[in-house]
Amino acid sequence: MPSGANAPIIKMDGVEKRFGNFAALDNVSLDVAEGERVVVCGPSGSGKSTLIRCVNALENHDKGAITVDGVLLDRSSQSLDAVKAATGMVFQQFNLFPHISVLDNLTLGPIRARGFSKSDAQAHAMTYLERVKIPEQAEKFPRQLSGGQQQRVAIARALAMEPRIMLFDEPTSALDPEMISEVLDVMSELANSGMTMIVVTHEMGFARQVADQMVFMDQGKIVEMAKPEAFFTAPKSNRAADFLRKILHH
């Protein structure tokens, strides 16, 4: 079922996810409009990563409904394939395929899952490597690149699948401080291009600059949702205020 003109591209309704007795997501509801940039923050273990991992079906939710790009995630292989195609994911630890070159990292998905020919996939991949400003690294292996370069390759790999939504799971947390900005710059450019994004991050400067919506989570619940200006200047909940105080003054 295609999404309507004003329907959210991601709709989470009363979503619950448990790991044993631990509620990683507890009655979470969130709508993301097409082109919207949502930044999710909160203390560790608050369910931020689980939230985006449920959106692209890396985790199966236990209760509630998740609709992505008009497809209700119901554990069927059709819905799984549709959601995988609609979303791109960037991981904290990059998760590049270490045994193949940068170029092959970018062409594997398009060739195997999208039916691109090798030459088309390579040309397509190079445009994305140029977009993240490392076309000269195409023939290298991931281990030969810096952390920042690896994460940019990971972003290009996700973009090469031409997703409608990009999910970022703490993309700069594993990086040395001097490499964070090169990754955030690429993400900012992507945000400016109109891509729908959900970003889990502690980079509050980036959040303030690009977010349309801030989501603050704690103990598996969405505690606060606000525009960045309101969230940073006058958080409504004590927990958000406490979190911001700690993260902005550490």
Partner: peptide
């Protein structure tokens, strides 16, 4: 092999056979 490799394969839409053949088994 790190779980992240399966997740990355999932995120670029590889099916189980392709994930094993091109990502997991070579490593």
């Amino acid at each position: 092999i790190d779980k992240g490799q399966y997740e990355a394969a999932h995120s670029v839409s590889l099916n189980y056979v392709d994930t094993m053949r091109f990502v997991i088994l070579p490593q």
